[in-house]
Design a protein around this nucleic acid. Structure first.
Lengths: 342, 342
DNA sequence: TTGTATGCGTTATCAC
DNA sequence: GTGATAACGCATACAA
């Protein structure tokens, strides 16, 4: 281990006090411009590296943000993280990232770990089956700011950065209705997650707008994974003609794709027999044939906004503190899977 | 900000010295068992949290490992990270994760950031176009251990955790040959990355084994992304019948899938006209029809091994220091895309 | 087995 | 403008 250069070394070399060096390094305006220049130059020359630990110890801040996500393996999540990393690093914050793998248990344990690591703030997108926020309570208790993104919690006092899932689902469903579909099924996730509840509501209201009676049997709740999507497809295949849907609106792209694969293997033509709309604009939506119509929304932006928001909270910004929801724009990308030939 | 409990608080409560508390907290065997118990109990009771910063400052270690990956958005990478997180957290290490997005420039800047954050060790999978290791030199200079995984660098003195890409590619190609394919094309990535060079070699040697002359025109280098895969497919479509391949071996699944999609849209039947083999066992390999034959290898395991290795290095383990490559097992998963009907 | 004293590198509070 | 000093919380060499 090589010896590290400290402010004392710089002080000695420049015949200044460590205090002055410390100020110079952060370009304090209370110092002579020329002094600052000399200090910066010397630091560069001697290969000085700021020591976060001493600094954190002194400041009682860790300059670290914790992130808990359900999974990292979607294009959406990757974009979110990229956006977060971008803003965070500009503001000098580190990120600690962990996955809950959609399990509430793991989410709790991750939150606990982060609490013990004394992160300055937490960014979290909830797991499927998280039904309470007791594991977040320690953060609330210590006034450590928490920002929810994408998957939030109803009625929570923290800020949430989300899209208008209701609106997006409404648009998706209305699009199918415009294509002439009348028996539209909806494959959704756990309805305790507000994003899925909101999407269901959008679906319902669109039907209502077109005077199609809502039918509970047309809504299927699942984990949206490969197995469930295939099961869902099999259920459709088992229906008699009169029952069969002429369209399916899935709450994510992955489930839509697996479902389409299964249906196609059994001779269902898409979109002629059944039209499809997904959600997320994942890469897979462009791999399936026909390409999947889906809802696109900006992961990057969500990440950027969430971190900015958190950092403003850390700075004690009162405006942010009173902001409950930040809603970002989403749009419908129409592709082959939902375009009925006229 | 609530006041934190320190070892001094515990010392006062228990009428012991801070030194004893410090020892007790790490269950030093030099202490009375009962003393340790009392300390642990009190710590629990008072809500004591260990302060990493004070500890790191004292120890001159950060207990943080840096990870640089090309991208986070594949199932493989997610598995690798999960494996890394698992072992690292068991050993009390934090992870800082960053993406190079396949750009050497970004990789350099990330490495630099991590160097300045004083990570104890670095885990890196190189970007496509990284041709030198000058950005890693500072780590070598300061004897900060570096472990390469998946994508390594030829001739580097550090340990690498990889699979036998040569063997895997050999198996993949031999499988196609056994299916009766004779005009096998290979879509590969940047050949400066040894994994792609090795795969090419495996492809060549398998051909050789079957006495098929190697033809440079049958090998296409690309970035393996959506656009390149589609272009590659178009090039195949533009060939006259005699030239057209009867099989394609792609260096990853994503390119194979995009290529298949494009070919299918132009009436090519898979596997009858052209058989396909990919690499990675990504989720998309099971979304395409027919399902893609691919090479499966354990991301989790690679992550676990890489971190164990790095931690042993940090402990000064000489055996690891002298280990140049750790090679993990991979296997061929045969699926519809390469199974010619007899 | 436990206690004393000190330093890790930085920064904030006073001084001057 | 700049300097002296203490404090952040922990861990270790040395004493007892």
């Amino acid at each position: 281990m090589q010896k590290e250069v400290t402010i004392y070394d710089l002080a000695r070399e420049l015949n200044l006090s460590p205090a002055t060096i410390s100020r110079g390094l952060k370009k304090s305006t209370a110092l002579n411009k020329s002094t600052v220049q000399r200090i910066l130059a010397k630091a560069e020359e001697m290969g000085y590296r700021h020591n976060n630990f001493a600094s954190n110890l002194r400041n009682k801040r860790t300059k670290t943000l914790g992130i808990i996500v359900p999974r990292l393996n979607s294009y959406f999540m990757t974009s979110v993280l990229a956006g977060m990393e971008d803003v965070a690093s500009k503001e000098g914050y580190d990120l600690i990232i962990s996955q809950s793998l959609e399990k509430s248990e793991l989410e709790k344990s991750n939150a606990n770990t982060m609490f013990n690591k004394r992160i300055d703030g937490l960014l979290i997108s909830l797991a499927y089956n998280t039904t309470d926020l007791t594991h977040i309570q320690p953060f609330f208790d210590r006034q450590i700011p928490v920002v929810f993104f994408d998957r939030s919690f109803p009625g929570v006092e923290s800020t949430s950065v989300v899209i208008d899932n209701y609106q997006a689902a409404y648009k998706a469903t209305a699009h199918l209705l415009e294509q002439g579909c009348r028996k539209i099924m909806h494959l959704t996730g756990d309805l305790t997650r507000d994003i899925y509840a909101d999407r269901l509501k959008g679906y319902k209201d669109a039907l209502d707008e077109y005077n199609i009676p809502f039918d509970q049997k047309r809504v299927v709740t699942s984990t949206l994974n490969e197995q469930d999507a295939t099961n869902f497809a099999n259920a459709i295949l088992a229906m008699d003609r009169a029952q069969r849907p002429d369209a399916v609106f899935c709450a994510n792209d992955v489930s839509a794709v697996y479902c389409m694969v299964q249906l196609k293997q059994h001779g269902i033509r898409i979109p002629d027999d059944i039209a499809f709309v997904g959600f997320n604009n994942d890469a897979v939506s462009r791999m399936i044939e026909p390409n999947l119509t889906t809802i696109d929304y900006p992961g990057n932006k969500i990440g950027e906004v969430a971190v900015s928001c958190l950092i403003n909270l850390l700075k004690g910004d009162e405006n942010v503190k009173n902001t409950n929801r930040i809603i970002l724009h989403s749009s419908l990308l129409v592709r082959g899977s939902s375009l009925k030939k006229k």
